[in-house]
């Protein structure tokens, strides 16, 4: 027997979408507050306090933080013991259509060539839903709305296997080329290895990791990024990136794929554990 009804699931996904758009995760709020505290540039400081105020108003009023409410990425973790008697993809799409009207969300989804807007934030391939199968009895949904300003600044390179030292340069050049356009302070997700497409997925996963867990290599990259001095909104300042995260996978002996995914300060993510 199904562990939950379709109606209950849809209702909860609508709530999850609304939460992801209106309340920023605590780790990001703390990172922004710390950044504000130690910022020495007055212009950057004014931008950071505007961001912190905006976060507070959005939470109080239950309004979307940013008018670019993004496109939607869902990650479903489901255990082998879980029985569901409805189509999860369809139910997620229904919840997204409904939230588009009620919150409201900006209708952002268009056909790539005709640019015709679906008006309900769904379309071919969107929302992007991935399933992770586990051994136990988990049933958990993660949602990540992604805006275009930062996504458009992301890049991928197929480096030569001997070009290990080029990784750092590629990350820095990507952040430099982006300047103020992805709404810094940003989070930089780097995917190294795998294949052309796996590197991209790794970079997105890396961008979505909690902000307080950088290793030495990531710290080194983050320090280098912040040396550029691009600062909040590209107007100059001490902090360009709140964090740089690197996820790796094994790859072909003849390849070295590197992907850099950029996330704006509105680092929106939320999850709901059903079981």
């Amino acid at each position: 027997m199904s562990i939950i009804s379709r109606d209950f699931f849809v209702k909860n996904i609508i709530e999850l979408i609304i939460r992801s758009e209106t309340i920023l995760p605590m780790d990001t709020v703390i990172a922004l507050e710390n950044t504000w505290q130690k910022e020495s540039n007055t212009v950057a400081k004014s931008q950071l306090s505007a961001i912190l105020k905006n976060i507070e108003i959005a939470r109080e009023k239950k309004y979307p933080l940013c008018q670019d409410t993004g496109i939607f990425i869902f990650n479903v973790t489901i255990g082998k013991n879980i029985v569901i008697d409805f189509n999860i993809n369809d139910a997620i799409c229904e919840a997204l259509r409904s939230a588009t009207g009620t919150l409201p969300l900006r209708p952002n989804v268009v056909h790539p060539l005709t640019r015709e807007n679906s008006l309900d934030n769904t379309g071919d391939g969107l929302p992007d839903i991935t399933f992770n199968l586990t051994e136990g009895s988990d049933f958990e949904i993660f949602v990540y709305p992604k805006g275009a300003g930062s996504e458009n600044m992301s890049r991928l390179a197929m480096l030569k296997p001997s070009q290990n030292e080029e990784i750092k340069r590629f990350v820095l050049e990507t952040v430099f080329a982006a300047g103020g356009m992805p709404c810094p302070p940003i989070i930089v997700g780097v995917g190294i290895g795998g294949s052309f497409d796996l590197a991209s997925r790794l970079s997105k996963k890396a961008a979505l990791r909690p902000l307080d867990e950088m290793n030495d290599f990531e710290e080194e990259l983050c320090d280098a990024v912040n040396t550029l001095g691009i600062g909040a909104m590209g107007l100059g300042g001490d902090t360009t990136a709140l964090a740089v995260h690197v996820n790796t996978a094994h790859c072909h002996t003849a390849s070295l794929p590197v992907a850099v995914n950029i996330q704006c300060w509105a680092n929106r993510r939320a999850h709901k554990k059903f079981v």
Binding site: K53, L65, C66, C183, A232, L235
Partner: peptide, 9 residues
């Protein structure tokens, strides 16, 4: 310049 993303502010 107005701070990017600060739509409700």
């Amino acid at each position: 310049a107005y701070t990017g993303g600060c739509a409700v502010l």
